[in-house]
Design a protein around this nucleic acid. Structure first.
Lengths: 249, 249
DNA sequence: CCTTTTCTGTGTATGCCATACACGCTACTG
DNA sequence: CAGTAGCGTGTATGGCATACACAGAAAAGG
């Protein structure tokens, strides 16, 4: 049964992703592969969004019945986890730079690129610490970037989670914004301007002086692009990490 | 019709949240209130999680038919937005501290407290920039904390989004973790230890030297609590913001 | 006063969704 | 060759959001 574990405590479909599945030879040959299922699901998500990924839709794409998928995956959550792993893909190969900041900046940018390639990935809820091959490989690379810093191991992990959370958040915001605009057919500029005008109507200068001041500069009408926002946030965070590292130096 | 706008471009239920609804006097008196609907939905979410909030469940709680809710709200998304606003509640009153860092730290902690009071709020997808009364009030307070800094208005907004994104992320991670543990009945310590042992099995020291090193310190078996993680991340980010402010003199 | 208009609550229906379960079949093990 | 475990599938259950049409209430206008 797909829910059973075999020592690792992992769902068997995740074990399969690690290459740990021995075919028990007994019954008929499987007509499908986990990989084919995940690929089909990824294709649907990329084409029509994560919301379009349903078990029946995936099955239809593969020309099989809905229920056959449950021979490979015990629940939809497992499929989502495997899709997530597929979306990340393997991290860039090679040794990271000696300088932690250079390497770690590259790591964050590469992570963002990977997520942006499959933006739906940020809408998959995180249900557990990383346990799939690619997720762990990204974690390995991130920790490797910090190897020459004087942070303790716990701090390295904390920094990793801080930055990956930031990247994830940033990708989600820009992607959701883009998706909303594509739906409404408006340009980003026009809808940001519309939002600014809306706030101007709703807020008076006495109750909302700071918002009013921000609106008066007109910066919302010519917002920096998502890239600027990403770079700004990443630089701030890494400056903070650098301050910690220097204080130990 | 509930989808119509009246100049603001806002859904009429959101206008109602700003107190902009004039009862048009024509038809029969409404038997419900937006407030009662939102309260019922909030109660369900707090009791059984956001997933338990369905239009039929909310209607049942109020003793009305499902479809009557659509006289007050044009789609479930609007209800979610109103629930979000109710969950945040008004920000703490009073003037923020003179020192930007003191004030802003307090802002972030208060935001975390508000979110933690209704943890389901972090699972409501963000569909638009803040447009509801309490969201804008929180934004006002955050900007007010930064009023004496030498950041330009655009930077203040960027810092605000950076920190609120961080808070949101942090609350989501700790809450999802707690929820998963409540479901499985395991303690956090035991499941973290189980995860560490799992990674030890899956990773070998040659392909995953950094992960192996991190695991060997045993820090995963005695992880810092969510509070430590929150404080660590917030301090790093604010150190980074402080570096920017200082560099401007 | 009566008609018209407009807004209310509701019942019904559509078309999705995940997945439990039972069945027949296949291909290997003894 | 019998047993059995794994496979594909059809059907059924119980959910969900919401479109639509209708009946009745309350006010506006004559």
């Amino acid at each position: 049964m797909a829910t059973e574990e075999s020592g690792t405590g992992l769902p068997s479909s995740i074990e399969a992703a690690w290459g740990l599945r021995e075919r028990p030879g007994k019954g008929p040959r499987p007509g499908l592969t986990l990989g084919r299922i995940v690929d089909a699901a990824v294709g649907i998500a990329s084409a029509d969004g994560l919301g379009a990924v349903s078990m029946s839709r995936v099955a239809a794409e593969l020309g099989v019945s809905t229920m056959s998928l449950y021979r490979y995956v015990s629940a939809k959550d497992e499929l989502l986890t495997l899709m997530e792993d597929a979306a990340y893909g393997p991290p860039p190969p090679g040794e990271p730079a000696e300088d932690w900041r250079t390497g770690f900046t590259g790591w964050a940018r590469a992570l963002r690129t990977a997520m942006a390639r499959h933006p739906w990935v940020v809408n998959i809820p995180i249900s557990a610490p990383p346990s799939t091959p690619n997720s762990v490989a990204w974690m390995e690379l991130g920790l490797a970037c910090l190897r020459r810093s004087n942070l303790c191991e716990g701090e390295k992990v904390s920094v990793l989670m801080l930055v990956s959370g930031f990247v994830r958040n940033e990708v989600r915001m820009t992607f959701d914004l883009l998706a909303a605009h594509r739906r409404s057919g408006q340009s980003i500029e026009s809808s940001m301007a519309a939002w600014a005008r809306l706030l101007e109507k709703l807020t008076d200068a006495e109750r909302f002086p700071a918002v009013t001041a921000a609106l008066r500069t007109g910066e919302f009408d010519t917002p920096g692009g998502p890239d600027d926002e990403f770079v700004f946030g990443l630089e701030r965070i890494l400056d903070g990490v650098e301050a910690l590292i220097s204080s130990r130096g």
